[in-house]
Amino acid sequence: MAETFLRRRTPELFGMATLVVCVLVFEALIRGGVVNRYIIPPPSDILLAFERVIVEENILARCRDTAFEMLVAGGASVLVGVPIGVLLYRSALWRRAMEDWIGALAAAPIVLAFPLFLVLFGRSPKTIIVMGFVHGLAPIILKTVEGLASTRPVLINVGRSLKMTSSQMFWKILLPSAMPIIFTGIRLSWTFVLITIVGIEYLINLGGVGQLINELAERYDLPGTYAGICFVILVSVLFFLALERVESWLQPGR
């Protein structure tokens, strides 16, 4: 039984072991003076800083704020992006007209437009959420169009042979078939959303973990700064684990 457990968990254990080895290598390189400890603090110092940032800096509440902004912005990107993708899929003219612009939006450094959003929405979480939402929109739209367009023609013919209405065709064939590609879009989108949210929190010194990282960096508390970054990664990991769960629930058998 233990053997089966080990075999099943081998990839995860291997991943953890790789991480531990990397941490140990960095520890050795920094302590040996190969890497400047004033640029990257030793991992052991970062680990020790965890307790301090949790107790003194209240980083869990900051994580909660960032996660909330992420949830609202990421959720809105899905709720708005998927329907826009569907509309573009249905209208060839709009699709041809807009696809390149949306692609450009995905590549644009929207974070740099924060002064404009500050003027529009003020120095508030609203600015952070709107900017995250805007940056997260494009990948979902593009991947929704791609997913729907790549539905296998034979599945559409099955639907036609069963005299399905266009609504049935959409909900029972096109959307489920497009789901894996739409989820790829959501993953990309949420990466953009998190980067934007933490970046804007950092830049405008407001809200969640991004602001705390800014403050810690200003104080030149490098172990604390890196511990803060670890918490950003933690938020990201939690979101992606949740997304994976939703994905396997929505698409069993794939």
Binding site: L155, V158, S161, L162, K163, K172, I173, P252, G253
Partner: peptide
């Protein structure tokens, strides 16, 4: 001149729905 309920079609290409179990595929119509 359009798909007729009296005709059931089986296609050359594999046409099961990968997101449905065997029974849900068969019960689909």
């Amino acid at each position: 001149s359009a798909p007729h309920p009296a005709v059931g079609m089986v296609f050359q290409e594999e046409s099961t729905f990968p997101w449905r179990t065997v029974i849900d595929n068969v019960a689909f119509p």
